[in-house]
């Protein structure tokens, strides 16, 4: 028999599961040795245990926060595995997972020039559609700091995109932003 709590959780998963899956698809690394489904399952398992604590109007942000930590833990584990295997074979180039997932090489090059924190907030804003306040909640920083980081990330990304592809992204002499 399905309880009301279970029904509400199922509705939560139906509402946000696809968004979370896409969050991981954008950041998943083939070398992570876990699938996107595993990552999603781990987030939902934590969310179920903390279901009563989910803020009513910020459920997705809370889930993003969990997802971010799941991904970080997974990469720490992958990093330790890589440290072991690197003794067995020469290390190759290791772009970040976000870069691996993006096929546009010019965009990849521009993103690669950003710091991890700038890249993270830019992807949250662009791909997940978070505004600075929501980014601040997910990242655990102040809105002011998020706003500053996002503004800088956009500026740096545009500048690096210009550097990587000056013909497609010329200087805008009108000054329009």
């Amino acid at each position: 028999m399905t309880t009301n709590r279970e029904e509400r959780f199922t509705q939560l998963v139906l509402a946000h599961g696809d968004v979370l899956s896409r969050y991981f698809q954008r950041r998943h690394h083939d070398a992570d040795a876990v699938s996107v489904d595993d990552l999603l399952a781990e987030v939902l398992a934590v969310a179920w245990r903390r279901f009563d604590d989910l803020p009513a109007d910020a459920e997705l942000l809370f889930l993003f926060g969990i997802a971010r930590n799941v991904l970080a833990n997974t990469r720490r584990r992958s990093g330790r595995r890589a440290a072991i295997t690197s003794r067995l074979r020469p290390p190759g180039p290791s772009p970040s997972a976000e870069l691996e997932a993006i096929g546009d090489l010019t965009v990849r090059a521009a993103l690669a020039e950003l710091t991890p924190t700038d890249r993270e907030i830019l992807l949250l804003a662009t791909f997940e559609g978070c505004d600075p306040t929501e980014c601040a909640t997910v990242l655990g920083i102040s809105t002011n700091a998020a706003s500053i980081r996002l503004s800088r990330a956009k500026q740096h990304f545009a500048a690096h995109l210009h550097a990587a592809d000056p013909e497609s992204f010329p200087v805008d002499v009108t000054g329009a932003m």
Partner: peptide, 15 residues
């Protein structure tokens, strides 16, 4: 002289 964020972000969204 500056760079157009909108175009850059459009390119990112397309990727």
């Amino acid at each position: 002289p500056t760079f157009d964020h909108a175009d850059a972000l459009d390119r990112l969204r397309a990727a």
